[in-house]
Write a protein that binds this DNA or RNA. Sequence first.
DNA 1: CTTTTTTCATGATCCTGCTCAATAATTTGT
DNA 2: ACAAATTATTGAGCAGGATCATGAAAAAAG
Lengths: 235, 235
Amino acid sequence: MASLTSHIHCQDCSMSSLCIAQPLDNDSMVRLDTIIQRRKPLQKRDLLTTAGAPLQFLYAVRSGSLKTYTLDDKGVEQIIDFHLPGDLVGFDALADGHHRSFSQALETTMLCEIPVQSLDDLASQMPTLRKQMMKLMSSELFASKQLLGDLNNRSAQQRLAHFLLTLSQRFAERGLSGKSFRLTMTRADIGNYLGLSVETISRILSALQTDGTLAVKNKLVEIRSLDQLNSLAGH
Amino acid sequence: MASLTSHIHCQDCSMSSLCIAQPLDNDSMVRLDTIIQRRKPLQKRDLLTTAGAPLQFLYAVRSGSLKTYTLDDKGVEQIIDFHLPGDLVGFDALADGHHRSFSQALETTMLCEIPVQSLDDLASQMPTLRKQMMKLMSSELFASKQLLGDLNNRSAQQRLAHFLLTLSQRFAERGLSGKSFRLTMTRADIGNYLGLSVETISRILSALQTDGTLAVKNKLVEIRSLDQLNSLAGH
DNA sequence: CTTTTTTCATGATCCTGCTCAATAATTTGT
DNA sequence: ACAAATTATTGAGCAGGATCATGAAAAAAG
């Protein structure tokens, strides 16, 4: 099965449309492909990056999911992001060449490993690749700043509704069902990310279940009324 | 005085150490300088960017300050960032070539105008410039994600203390006093940014004044006890 | 399969920060 | 310089969500 993994190339990766490879012509993609390594899958709870470690690779998620977090001075975890297939992990380390956060697999997760040195070499020769990297960072930057506003002035219910909608959209973009999906993170993770207590997450999920907006069964979520969820999120 | 403004070059700009020009050698800086335009100062309340408008320039703040915000579907302002001298404005527009937010001057503000097309041309020839742009974006990205966590799980007092400390640091980096500075934004702006009501901002400022952490006189803030402010922020 | 650990659900209580309200101080416009 | 508008301060009351506590359900470990 290792042979299967190692035989997947950018050219036929289903995630390439979201990835750094998106705007490249076939020839460029082949060149990108040659510098990319595959590695054996991460198991649940395995760490991909550690804060402070020197940056060697950027990672593209092929399947599975991760959470990115920092530890504050008191050692308290602060979740910064969740990563789904097609997402890139490691941009925050470009600033000074060291990772600034921890990334941990939430389930069995497969990745592409992109050596930053080679990527930089390639970027200097390929304007399209350079622009794509800028675009991805710019998008992430805006999304992150937008999120700040989205969360700050909103109620617990609005935050959670927004979170579920965003997940739904992201699954849909990845060719998966946006109606029905599995939360790979715990309620505590969601609460941490949204600045709410576990209890609040639990209570709101129950309430949304009761009023028919969602069907929740453990980690499985089904969106019963997208309209209602949208209006709860305030969109 | 217009002649004075137009005669300032990257080579002798006091902000160049924070700006995109930071790592460039003198020759490169001169080349960068030739593509940069100066323009007449923005007056308080003037808009620099408008959401939806095509991206033509990135801007570097030379003096003064701005706020960046979006308008939600109900037309409610959501402040995303404050910009001080040395900051770059416009990175969020690189993703699709259109500005995604409004930037408004909080006071009389001078700017450098950097045409993105020329900047991109230059970046393709100058690896150092390219890397610096990536670094700046990466830093901003991490700062923004970090901020999310910093705000989310913290009390009103911790948030405001954190905000003031960040401002203080930024002023200090810019060669200004970090002990004593002027808030160019209103209390309402701060509240909007931190997800707190104006009243809460006002009350906490009064409380910090009473307990001797700060001296506040209208827009003027003096940090009386940095230690105390630090411990309030939870650092 | 059984035991242990982790995660989730729900209730009761409390407190932080919001809303509403009234006044004062600054800033802006004429 | 004055009037109007915006911004800031302070108080009272209320409510959303945190915390504490307990039990149930899943998941992980053995």
